[in-house]
Design a protein around this nucleic acid. Structure first.
Lengths: 131, 131, 131, 131
DNA sequence: GTGGTCTAGACCACC
DNA sequence: GTGGTCTAGACCACG
């Protein structure tokens, strides 16, 4: 059902697995309420360490994508709209957090940060056009 | 700064460590922006495995309590309004101390105190529900 | 008679059940010689697996708290001098209730109370050692 | 190192495994401090369920024969004289306990029980001689 | 990779 | 109807 991650892609294996699972949900390959393969099963199929699988599933649980029931298995959450909270966003969140943290340490306030971001976004659009 | 967890208390070690850190923040023993001891240092002091320390810190990061900066260390998050937190916990401390003192005078040991508190907390939850 | 354990408290379910039973004996809610509810009954009431109940009872049996009679049921052991036990716990109960009331008035929630108590218990252990 | 238990012998599998382990210790096949095979390994070798292995080891731990170290493995206790506490005795203890419990429920006191046992022992010796 | 806990559900033995 | 044992297999904690 899932395929082997590429260990030399630069993207952490657990993130690649997260992407595969969220993608499977988005495409409807697995549906809310469905049970996912067990941790050991996944680890064997994908030839990765069970702990890595655990890490991926734990992150997905924190994000509300799956539900881990002790002794029973891992299930896709019943709720809804993963569209708005795709893996990409989830992945980006901590990066943004650390970035803002750094800016604040530099002494920038909210307004200054907003202006900085906006101007950089505009710049990068221009660079795109000129390339 | 932190105490050795009790491995036979039934409470997972990583959770005991989380509790200690949270409590230290609540009481103001460590303040927002402060750096916590390194993972290895903590592991040695508490005589536990570094991975267990990592797990505790990772959970606290997810909860927004601390921030792990790659290559720099672990820091208490700036955000929260810990001032009101600290005040109420600090006010509560002497009450707790006196209370524990009284129970011990009654002849209760640690185990009995733990059970009594837990039981009373559960009871009051039920009273809440029924009200 | 017994309450549903909290499966996400970090404390193993079987241990929470042990605590409840021990506490019920200490307070005199159940007395030496009394029969406890059957394993299946308990499991249904608490919405947990019968095997988990068995584990709790087995541990209590090893500790000499209860006696499991095959085909007959589970009984509180006759031996111990619970009278003195009961007295001190029962005396302590209103103290605990008042104490928890005060903490709640300070604005502490259950989680904060738990941490405070645990932390104070640990502290007093260290004071003991150093004395 | 250990061999498959007989599931249809009437003796519980976990007890057969306990016997094998204690026998291995008594004969010196495994010595104090030695690590036993892991739970999963044992289960595979003996073609039984891991939980059954766990049950056997837990009982042996309660009896002080082995020491289970979380995350590390199962080890033969360093202490000594298992000779005086052989499996036979350990097995017999709970039987004796329940027997005495029954007699007490019949209203017999300690002295009466002692006399009863002694007289029965003498009787059975006589029966032996006459057979 | 170790042991620890839990679920679900089976069949057996005792009273 | 009680507890006793066992299986199959899940996730959790720790080293």
């Amino acid at each position: 059902m899932f395929h082997k991650p590429n260990p030399s892609s630069g993207i952490p294996i657990y993130r690649q697995l997260m992407d595969q699972i969220t993608h499977a949900i988005e495409t409807g390959a697995v549906r809310p309420g469905d049970q996912l393969p067990g941790i050991r099963t996944l680890a064997e199929q994908l030839v990765i360490n069970p702990n890595t699988v655990v890490k991926a599933l734990r992150e997905l649980e924190h994000a509300g994508i799956v539900e881990i029931r002790h002794g029973a298995g891992v299930f896709v959450t019943q709720k809804k709209n993963y569209e708005t909270q795709s893996t990409k966003i989830i992945t980006a969140q901590p990066i943004a957090k650390k970035f803002l943290q750094k800016l604040r340490e530099q002494g920038l306030d909210e307004e200054e940060i907003r202006r900085l971001i906006q101007s950089e976004l505009i710049d990068s659009q221009h660079e795109k056009k000129h390339s």
